[in-house]
Write a protein that binds this DNA or RNA. Sequence first.
DNA 1: GTCAATAATAATTTCGAGATTTCAGAAAAG
DNA 2: CTTTTCTGAAATCTCGAAATTATTATTGAC
Lengths: 236, 236
Amino acid sequence: MDGTARGPKVVAARSLVEAAYETIRHDILTGDLAPGTKLRFEMLRARYGVGASTLREALTRLVGEALVTSEEQRGFRVAPISIEDFADLTRTRRLIEVEALRQSIVFGDDLWEAGLVAAFHRLSKVEEKLPDAPERQQDEFEERNRDFHRALIAACPSRWLKHMHAILFQQSERYRRIALCDRTVPRDVHTEHKAVLEAALARDVDLACRLEGEHIERTLEVLNELVASKALPLRS
Amino acid sequence: MDGTARGPKVVAARSLVEAAYETIRHDILTGDLAPGTKLRFEMLRARYGVGASTLREALTRLVGEALVTSEEQRGFRVAPISIEDFADLTRTRRLIEVEALRQSIVFGDDLWEAGLVAAFHRLSKVEEKLPDAPERQQDEFEERNRDFHRALIAACPSRWLKHMHAILFQQSERYRRIALCDRTVPRDVHTEHKAVLEAALARDVDLACRLEGEHIERTLEVLNELVASKALPLRS
DNA sequence: GTCAATAATAATTTCGAGATTTCAGAAAAG
DNA sequence: CTTTTCTGAAATCTCGAAATTATTATTGAC
């Protein structure tokens, strides 16, 4: 939300709508645009330097992804967050992602394995240097983490299941960034990822699905502890 | 797709974007705008009588619901349909809807039961007179059918599960309208609905979920037969 | 002082012309 | 004959002012 200078947001987009969409989305996911914030057009125009119609289209897209809410004739707001919402989100994502993983392991071929190992490797690299500068690396970590989870379910033949997963996974990024930034609750994400990877490569469907489910649930547990102990607000 | 005059589409919407969105969505769901159709702005402006930016916003919303596709700098198209897509859609919807129903039956109270019975009653009324004039009644049937399926899972406490369901259910409406219009394959939808209702009211979770799953799958079977026998194209 | 009606202000929503990009067909080169 | 380049036409994309609608402030009546 602050206007301090940071590195120019690198957004390779062909249309202005796309660029605005990606930048605003990023600002919402990082919390730079805080949950519940009213999104006035004058403010947005000054901030992102595009016209009203262009902004409107970008915001409409974000409404479709439930990152923004809109009320007829009353404009747009950053979608609120709450621990209850994250609990619901986590359970739903678990249902979808575990089923997708199950199918992916069954259908996955050598190419899938290769992509998976590659994604894990790249994720590991950024996980190593994550403790040094948590904030700086977060964008890269999120990207690698998303790619790894995508690679896990890449061989799932259901486009719709993967589409549902994409929506839910992006939603949870808002909460994940909060949970990962704070380091009060200790957690070894790398080991969790490694365990899932090995089970998947070993084609141990049940084990992989159980580990993946627990891995997904883990972030909720961390956030629950944070809310309980540190009185983390988590309100809109 | 034709420009012939038909009854004025009754759309109670506060904003023009909303009105355009609902009208276009309806035209896509009914097939009035055929799958794969290029959506040029001049054509849409003439047809729906709103400006380019307004249309753009309405279309963007439809892209979010996967009823329209967009390619950067190349405009919008009505999303294609295929029997493979419907098979995938059906399986995914079954996973979601059955899980939502399971939770709904567990959590449902008297008010839920009342709403369910009411929705079933209204659906029955339109199911009775459906054979007389299949085309005329289809809009009303779709609305009542949607309300009934919504009522079934209304007591499910997960907002996300219900959100996922809404997306998938709307998608399947396109295919359902095709399957229900054609009457070559006999089917007693009313009896299927009644069986699910009774199992749900009896709180027989497993039976209700099994019946609901079969009910969902049934439309796919019908459409599969249609494609096989009558050489129904089902391509974009 | 409270409430309702009205005016002033602020924000959202809509439009259509102009900038930019893609597409289709003809002409030229290989 | 095939491929490439060019050019006009057509379509998409963008902007900012104007219209519409909400919100706030003011006034007057009870």
